[in-house]
Design a binder for these strands. Structure first.
Lengths: 203, 203
DNA sequence: TAACTTCTGGATCGATTAGTATATAATTAA
DNA sequence: TTAATTATATACTAATCGATCCAGAAGTTA
């Protein structure tokens, strides 16, 4: 049975998208409700809280929105149709491409939007830190798979190699924010992937 | 001739140090004057503005303080007594060591304290972005030197290789914030430096 | 049309923001 | 001692923060 109600005057999905863009550009704390409401379609405070509950709830939703769209560039890590090396290389290149795209803020929302915050908002930092943890876990699994299928020697320290690529991947955010062009980062990725060749000499 | 005055009740250097620690931990915008004044020795608002002029001026001073102390780990890049490879490796290891030290906030103040901010404070982001630009420039010069002395082939794209190490170096901040131990990052650095060996095979 | 539900505009909440005004305390030089 | 100078504590400013309240508008169902 359809509920009786006055229809919402703004598009909730579009409003969420704009909110995500703002959080991506400015970070959680630096983005004010006033600015959010303006960019979300000049909606009133009452409409905002009725539709999104709170700034924190909106941020959580924006993070999920990001993970389900732009953030999907890391999904290649779990793509079993690719070799582990291809999975990592594809993830890095897609990450660099996405983060330098001029259609949206540069860098990664998960890395940048709550890298620091006031002590009272440490739970906000946890929200994105948890996402980073998940991605690191996928990277870890991918490298473990490389050992399992014999692509790299089993003597390799998985945590160490996970850290190599995880560190590089996170560093891309700052490069993108600082205006380093995609082509340069892409060539750097080629060089970094060369690490994989070293195992053949060491094995 | 000595000026006549009432002596300051707090230690300015110590107050600046505490301010730097707060900006390091929480970032520029998330750190309030109230908290700053409390950590700087419970100084009054009047005393604060008399001694430091404004929050922005204090931040600039804190950034310089950081660059002159903890930030000096990157000075190895310009150390001509080291080979270029040694200079980069030393810088990375010292960076990782410093940023994971439990005596102070983890990660790098230059990378974390103003990675994002509200649009009205973009000039604050510029302050630290400029420091990153300088470090990147030193890295660039170091790699150019490697070519000049014949350590790596002149066919190497200097900007590309600069990006490899600059990206990795910036990524260390997030790793350190996420609690990855020094030992793991240090072993990852060994692996990344292996890139240098690839040139011998490609040359 | 009347009853019901939901959304919206506008005023407003208390708390906090960075920064300032003023009066007084503490020092040194004359 | 007195004048000059600087730092202090206290109170305060206007603006903004995230969030709430309420009256009324806009829709659906009976």
């Amino acid at each position: 049975m359809a509920r009786t109600r006055r229809p919402r005057i703004f598009d909730r999905d579009e409003a969420l998208l704009q909110a995500m863009m703002l959080f991506w550009e400015q970070g959680y704390e630096a983005t004010s409700l006033l600015q959010l409401r303006a960019d979300m379609g000049n909606i009133s405070a009452a409409s905002f809280y009725a539709a999104f509950e709170s700034k924190e709830a909106l941020f959580k939703e924006a993070v999920e929105q990001y993970m389900g769209t732009f953030g999907r560039v890391t999904e290649s890590l779990a793509d079993l149709t690719l070799t582990p090396r291809e999975a990592i290389e594809t993830t890095l290149r897609r990450t660099a491409k996405m983060q330098t795209d001029s259609d949206h803020p540069n860098g990664c929302l998960i890395v940048l939007s709550a890298s620091t915050c006031s002590s009272k908002n440490n739970h906000i930092r946890e929200i994105v830190a948890e996402k980073r943890k998940q991605i690191r876990s996928h990277l870890h699994d991918c490298i473990q798979r490389a050992i399992d299928v014999g692509e790299i020697p089993s003597s390799i320290d998985v945590s160490m190699l996970t850290t190599v690529f995880d560190t590089f991947m996170h560093g891309i955010s700052t490069q993108a924010r600082d205006g380093v062009p995609f082509a340069t980062i892409d060539r750097a990725i080629t060089e970094v992937m060369g690490i994989w060749e070293l195992f053949k000499h060491s094995a």
